[in-house]
Design a protein around this nucleic acid. Sequence first.
DNA 1: GAAGATTACTTGAAACTTCAACTATTAGCC
DNA 2: GGCTAATAGTTGAAGTTTCAAGTAATCTTC
Lengths: 158, 158
Amino acid sequence: MTGKEPKWLNSREMKAWRAYIIASRRLLEALEQDLEDHDLSMPDYEVLAQLSEAPGRRMRMSELAEIAMVSKSRLSHRITVMEKAGWVKRQACTEDKRGSWAVMTEKGFRAIVKAAPDHVQSVRARFLDQLSGKDQENLAVLFDRIQTGLREDFKNEA
Amino acid sequence: MTGKEPKWLNSREMKAWRAYIIASRRLLEALEQDLEDHDLSMPDYEVLAQLSEAPGRRMRMSELAEIAMVSKSRLSHRITVMEKAGWVKRQACTEDKRGSWAVMTEKGFRAIVKAAPDHVQSVRARFLDQLSGKDQENLAVLFDRIQTGLREDFKNEA
DNA sequence: GAAGATTACTTGAAACTTCAACTATTAGCC
DNA sequence: GGCTAATAGTTGAAGTTTCAAGTAATCTTC
């Protein structure tokens, strides 16, 4: 913190921040609700979607955790639950005996294939359809910039 | 669902959606991390901030839950925790004996007053500073529109 | 003014997430 | 080879959130 910035947000900043944070919360809420029909949360959806696109529909736990943006511990717990649901199986990794594969079952594949179009439609209806093509392009640029900024911040902290 | 829309996202849509969702997740993560220095989560911060601005620094549980966007049950549990931390007290409501007031203590007020500038600075550094004034204005418009769209959806579902 | 519905809030249990600790294995290094 | 450090993943406990059910008070309506 440089101390140069004013302490509070001006009206323009406040409007941007509140519009973003409130709409985001409600959007996520709505998307989660839509997914409930398929007995899935967004993080679980992400895990299964990634797994379904991996070669052989299997992936090492660490890689899956990273790509689906969940902690290793959390993934491990979730996979245990999904195993009980019969969507995934764990398989020992012979190349690296510390590791294990998360392997999607046929049942798991059917589940994600069934959920995906509804989820996409939900994202479309609640988010993309509110934005013009140009809006979408601008938004992608802005949020990529924010993400890059976060990485910079991280570098400075580390 | 009308069935008219294509099943998958095109490249522009995908870029917008992924940029938004990934940056948002990382942004929230970063903001939460920044708040940890003050032993606060974002929802807890929101609760305390709202309470600190209420007349008499007290608010009825229901109203506080609504304005801070948390469920009543969750608020009740959180207030129990905050009571133990000495930040808030519950007070019986005489006008409506079913109800109760959440009352911010002096200690709670000091905690939020201490956290607020850091949090604002964190929002600034990680979000607002990445955007030009014009960007901020555009963003506010877009996300207000998304929020309005969600309300429409809700009306159609209810 | 009493029965029934609604509202305000709390509670306990179940499910979920986080955190730190742990095992097992592999990699790096002299 | 043998020692230490790092990596892959799991686990159990503690804390958090959700959900359904509960209590108590107020409102409605006839």
